[in-house]
Simulated assay, not measured.
Amino acid sequence: MWQKALENAIAKTRRNIERFGDQFPHVSKEDKYLLNPNTDWTNGFWSGILWLCYEYSGDEIFRNAARKTVDSFRNRLDHHINLDHHDIGFLYSLSSKAQWMIERDPKAKELTLAAADVFMKRWRPEMEILQAWGPEGNEQNGGRIIIDCLLNLPLLYWAYEVTGNQQYLEAAISQADKTRRFIVRGDDSSYHTFYFNQTTGEAIRGGTHQGYEDGSTWTRGQAWGIYGFVLSYYYTKNPLYLETSVRMAKYFIERLPKDHVVYWDFDAPVTPDTKRDSSASAITVCGLHELLKYLPENHPEKAFLQEGMEKSMHGLVKSYSTISEPDAQGLIKRGSYSVRSGNSPDDFVIWGDYYYLEALMRLDNGHKGYWYDRPQGMSE
């Protein structure tokens, strides 16, 4: 039932290859993607879109374009271009790791492991966290974690499984545990960020960078939590991660608006001008699809979560996709980068397009994205 939407997304991506050339799409302005030469945290999502399109269609045009992006990511790592942040997982899981999963190219595996080592430079042993942004010791960001990091952790889990190096695993588990303890609130909502004392590791306070206010729940952050915790469950089998994903998912679905695509923050006042974040709903659909695989049929929330996933996906396709706009560059409208700062608050965002396409692939043929993979010779 999702074939029309998939075919439409693939046709748009084919046209975008020529439009974008060697550049990478980020967010849009006046319905056209702003491009960069692989310098932003979002560039891996374009690679992931290309690999998904190749796997669905088998068309070499997508594989050739995806391989070129991996070459660009190799150059980015070699020259350490804007890698002083935790989004290394977003960059390399969807580019070189995806290539490894699809083609078993040993050079792609080597590049991905090198990226994991760059990510590990974010580890701060005094606090037992992976610092989100900025240099070590930075006054503003030195002790900060953010919920987005949960989707970067699969790079470290994967690196552990490939190498057996416990340091990758221990860092990922510590980060997931800290996020669960300090970012997820008692009512199953979430902070965007949390601060720790850089010397003692003492917890200081929760806050936000993207949300409506420090105590609100930024919907994309909640979505990262839903998907991120279930991926940590996949790798560790820690039932607390699965439970947390279920709780956060229930909170999310209980607050869906009538068209089933969320506003940018659950606590922002709703007016005719309140911005949406279609990317948050797309991420959540992917997370719910993964989550439902691990819940027994008699789980008390399974039917509710299943219905919420289906309603969210139908809402995205019906009211937010660009199916009826053949010349559109983006796949889903009304994504928000940062409503708080006025930065692309109601536009195409490349991560929204990626997760929308991953969600379609999941629902159409059971694709699992590029967040986990078992090395050859290991059973899943």
Rank of each mutant, 00 (worst) to 15 (best):
Q306A: 14
E297A: 14
D267S: 10
V285S: 05
K311A: 06
E297L: 11
H299K: 07
I323V: 06
K293W: 00
S321N: 09
V317T: 11
L291I: 04
D277M: 04
L305W: 08
T322C: 06
G308R: 13
E307Q: 15
S281F: 04
L305M: 05
F304D: 02
G287W: 13
K275A: 05
P300C: 08
P269Y: 10
P300Q: 12
Q306N: 14
G308E: 05
T271P: 05
L292C: 09
E290L: 13
D273A: 14
V317P: 03
Q306H: 12
S278E: 01
A280F: 02
Y320S: 08
L292W: 08
E307R: 13
P296Q: 02
T284H: 08
V270W: 08
V285Y: 09
H314P: 03
K318E: 08
E297R: 15
S278F: 02
L292Q: 06
I323Q: 13
A280I: 00
V285E: 03
G315H: 02
Y320N: 07
K302P: 04
D277N: 13
R276N: 01
M313K: 09
K318L: 06
A282S: 13
L305T: 05
K275I: 02
S281T: 14
L305N: 02
S279P: 05
F304C: 04
G308T: 07
Q306P: 00
A282C: 07
M313E: 03
H314I: 01
K293L: 06
E310T: 06
A303N: 14
T271W: 12
N298H: 14
L295H: 06
V270P: 03
A268F: 00
G308K: 11
P269T: 09
P272L: 01
M313Y: 10
N298Y: 09
D277T: 03
A303L: 08
V270H: 10
E310M: 07
K311E: 04
K275W: 10
Y320K: 14
E307F: 00
N298W: 06
A280S: 15
V285C: 09
V317A: 02
G287Q: 12
S279R: 12
E310C: 03
G287P: 08
H289F: 13
S319Q: 11
Y294T: 03
V317Y: 03
T274Q: 08
V317C: 09
T322R: 11
L291M: 07
V270R: 14
P300M: 09
A303K: 15
K302Q: 11
S279G: 11
D267R: 09
Y294H: 15
D267K: 10
D267I: 01
T322M: 06
I323E: 13
P272V: 03
K275R: 15
S312Y: 08
Q306D: 12
P272M: 01
P300W: 11
S278Y: 00
S281D: 07
E310S: 12
K293R: 15
P296C: 08
N298K: 15
G308W: 07
L288H: 12
